[in-house]
Structure formats: C-alpha cells, structure tokens
Amino acid sequence: MLSRHEVDHVAALARLALTDAEAERMAVELSSILEHIDRIRALDLDGVAPTAHVSDATAPLRPDVPVPSLPREALLAAAPEVADGGFGVPSPGASAQ
C-alpha cells in the first residue's frame, strides 16, 4: 500500500500539483496497480539480462555537418512568455511576492 507521504514525494519529484482528493485517490489506485505488478517480483530472474532496447542495433552516428536551424519567430510563436528574443520564466532563485 502506497502511503500518502510516498504519493506526495513522488508528486513533488514529478512536479505535479495534486489536490488532497487526487492524492488520496492516487494512493488507492497506484496501490492496486502495484499489487498486480508485484507478481513479477516473485519470478526467478536470476542471471537474466535487462532489455532496454528490443533490438541489439548499434546507434547510427550523424556526420558533424550543420543543417539550418528553425527561424526564431517559429520557435517563439508557441512560447507562453517572450522577452528579448528569449523564453521568459520566473527566476529560479526568486520566490513569489
């Protein structure tokens, strides 16, 4: 059973604001899913190599030749806040007033 404390910790890691009700429901739902999943932890997997990629392919490498970048206007067009050709954000060090 996932505790409320664990839910809050994971939500903080994932930068998700959850309401109290959401966090409570999340604890119940995740616990039930994890309970199902936990069955694989009983399997004998000693000496089994983990699979991160289904194919054993080798990464193709790209020649170091520049290609055109996107026009800045196209990038900034989608930005929630534009300032001086850049993407505006709250300063990392600053707290709300």
Binding site: A79, P80, F87, P90, P92, A94
Partner: peptide, 16 residues
C-alpha cells in the same frame, strides 16, 4: 516554458 499551457507563471518557478 517553451510551448503549450502555462499556469502560475506569474508566481515562482515551482508553482509554474
């Protein structure tokens, strides 16, 4: 930061 929805952007970074 770069696209899509932004809420709390007038507050601090973590709230955003």
């Amino acid at each position: 930061v770069r696209y899509g929805l932004r809420l709390g952007g007038e507050q601090d970074l973590l709230s955003m």
